[in-house]
Write a protein that binds this DNA or RNA. Structure first.
Length: 116
DNA sequence: ATTCTGACAGCAA
DNA sequence: TTTGCTGCCAGAA
């Protein structure tokens, strides 16, 4: 059997990718929220680390919908141009001002609450 | 095997 | 109030 494939499903990285891909259009979430959903709780850094490797993924990961707990576009610099992430968000109707999501509480999509 | 880093989050001063 | 330090876990050198 494809152990590797099964393993990927259990991998922390893949979990992050899957959850990230599940983020609805026009919604955003935080690294910590995903970390909690994965059960790691305080390992939000791993989420960021996983997203850092999202470039190695053949699929498109809407990492622009993942921001830090304050709704700050912490990883905008990793989208090639520093404006790409902000541009993508704006394209989805998410207002971004000063690298921060406007109405973050409203746009926030909690995997724990939505996926449960 | 050990050490360092990393797109965070929370708490302390 | 803002700034900074630690904790957390996994992957890369």
């Amino acid at each position: 059997m494809a152990k590797k494939q099964l393993k990927e499903e259990n991998d922390f990285f893949s979990m992050v990718y899957e959850v990230t891909k599940l983020i609805p259009y026009g919604r955003v979430t935080s690294y910590g929220a995903i970390a909690r959903y994965l059960g790691s709780g305080r390992s939000a850094r791993m989420v960021g680390w996983a997203l850092n490797a999202c470039h190695s993924r053949p699929e498109f990961i809407p990492a622009h919908r993942v921001v830090n707990s304050r709704g700050l576009l912490s990883g905008k610099h990793h989208f090639g141009n520093s404006t790409t992430m902000e541009q993508l968000l704006k394209n989805e109707g998410v207002l971004v001002e000063d690298d921060q999501i406007v109405g973050f509480s409203e746009k926030f999509w909690d995997p724990l609450r939505e996926l449960k």
